[in-house]
Simulated assay, not measured.
Amino acid sequence: MTTASPIRVLLVDDHAMVRRGLATFLKVHDDLELAGEAATGEEAIQLCGRVQPDVVLMDLVMPGMHGVEATRAIRRQFPAVQVIALTSFNEEGLVQNALQAGAIGYLLKDVSANELAQAIRAAHTGRGTLSPEVAQALIHASTQPPALGRDLTGRERAVLTLMVQGLNNTEIAEKLFVSPSTVKSHVSHILSKFDVASRTEAVALAVRHHLVD
């Protein structure tokens, strides 16, 4: 496959040997070109503005700003730049965070050279690519019930914290400067989300699962 101009690729990884291997890989493909190298997330963002890559190969676990943060910043500041996460880790949370941050692809570092080249070309045309293991992790995550407390709102979490401290609805209302009826509504939502029937059960779950400080 050839294009009128090569796809410019920015490499982001804190390991020089990994970047060197990827740079060598790019040289053997006529339609791919090394746009630059960065060792940190901060450097990647700066380079994007300077070298204007088409695609970024982004490591996720790096000192300082990690790859998810860098991906989010790049996609916000340079929306034309596509980001492919290229990492050794396929934990469900990391995969979800990277994709939510705007990564168009998620590949593990044991990907073949041909698969990586195809993923870069796909990203350049707006198509995503996931390693099979990553796709499986996403499927698993989508079939699991949400973690306890994950769907609490900020105000519900504040109410729960005061419940754990032993305050009743009137005392919580005074602390949060709201009406007791508002607190009662929040408590009702908390019980529903926890699938319990009483405040005591909700407090016990919150303590057991370390949901409040």
Score class of each variant (00 low, 15 high):
130 L>R: 08
142 S>Q: 14
131 S>V: 09
94 L>F: 03
144 Q>P: 07
117 A>G: 04
87 T>I: 12
106 Y>Q: 08
117 A>W: 04
111 V>D: 06
82 Q>P: 07
67 G>L: 11
131 S>I: 08
148 L>Y: 04
105 G>S: 15
46 Q>D: 13
173 A>T: 13
127 R>K: 14
95 V>I: 09
89 F>S: 04
47 L>F: 08
126 G>N: 00
146 P>N: 06
108 L>W: 00
36 G>Y: 13
149 G>E: 07
107 L>C: 02
149 G>N: 05
78 F>D: 04
51 V>I: 15
173 A>F: 10
63 P>D: 13
46 Q>K: 13
144 Q>A: 12
48 C>E: 06
57 L>N: 10
115 E>D: 15
35 A>C: 06
47 L>M: 15
77 Q>L: 15
62 M>L: 06
145 P>T: 14
71 T>C: 14
172 I>D: 00
116 L>V: 10
149 G>Q: 01
58 M>Y: 02
108 L>E: 03
172 I>W: 09
110 D>P: 00
153 T>Y: 00
126 G>P: 01
133 E>V: 12
175 K>Y: 04
159 V>S: 05
33 E>C: 13
78 F>P: 06
57 L>T: 09
42 E>F: 02
156 E>S: 11
175 K>R: 15
104 I>T: 13
127 R>D: 00
53 P>Y: 11
64 G>F: 06
71 T>K: 05
121 R>Q: 05
54 D>N: 15
38 A>S: 10
51 V>K: 08
83 V>H: 00
159 V>G: 10
119 A>C: 05
125 T>A: 04
45 I>C: 07
37 E>C: 12
43 E>K: 11
168 N>M: 03
63 P>V: 11
51 V>F: 08
128 G>N: 09
